[in-house]
């Protein structure tokens, strides 16, 4: 098994133990697979289906239902710009246009160097600090052109600011 390795299985058992029914761990385990490979491969879904004793069709249906699952490897930095109402009013379309221009890609695409994937997403739940962009696991708020440019520079140099909690 390429994806559901013994190491993965050990992690998976701990996750399954949180639920009275093993198949409830399907989404967390898909997330785990994506964490390890950057996306959810066909083969990974097959192996996971066998591991949880589920039909492949269910695993695929779940994977394609939720937006956070990548079907192909994404760039090193997944730039997800919120395009919903508050961020729209705060200038999200302008930010998206600037990103398209600077990176030379459209939404849904990845730069040739594999560094950036650009997506427009729906409300990220941080509207008071609009416009908001999520990069991998981090939120970047109150963005304007200057801050966006600075962030892109940081990212190009491999600096993804971790947040202080």
């Amino acid at each position: 098994m390429a994806f559901v390795t013994d190491e993965f299985k050990a992690k998976a058992e701990k996750i399954c133990a949180k639920y009275p029914r093993r198949d409830a761990a399907l989404i967390p385990l898909l997330q785990e697979l994506q964490k390890e490979s950057g996306y959810v491969a066909e083969e990974a879904m097959d192996e996971l289906a066998r591991f949880l004793n589920l039909p492949y069709a269910r695993v695929k249906a779940v994977m394609t239902f939720y937006t956070m699952f990548n079907r192909e490897p994404a760039g090193k930095y997944h730039l997800q710009v919120c395009r919903n109402i508050s961020c729209h009013m705060a200038g999200a379309p302008g930010l998206l246009a600037r990103l398209r221009e600077k990176l030379g890609i459209a939404e849904g695409e990845t730069t040739k160097d594999g560094l950036f994937t650009l997506s427009a997403v729906e409300c990220l739940g941080a509207c008071g600090a609009a416009p908001v962009m999520q990069v991998n696991d981090e939120y970047f708020e109150r963005l304007d052109e200057a801050r966006l440019d600075a962030l892109l520079e940081d990212l190009k140099h491999g600096r993804l600011r971790a947040r202080d909690l």
Partner: peptide, 18 residues
């Protein structure tokens, strides 16, 4: 045999099998 499922969501949904 559970071959079929509805993939995706909204009006992008479609019936499919592996």
């Amino acid at each position: 045999t559970s071959e079929l499922e509805v993939m995706e969501r909204a009006d992008h949904s479609f019936i499919d099998l592996k």
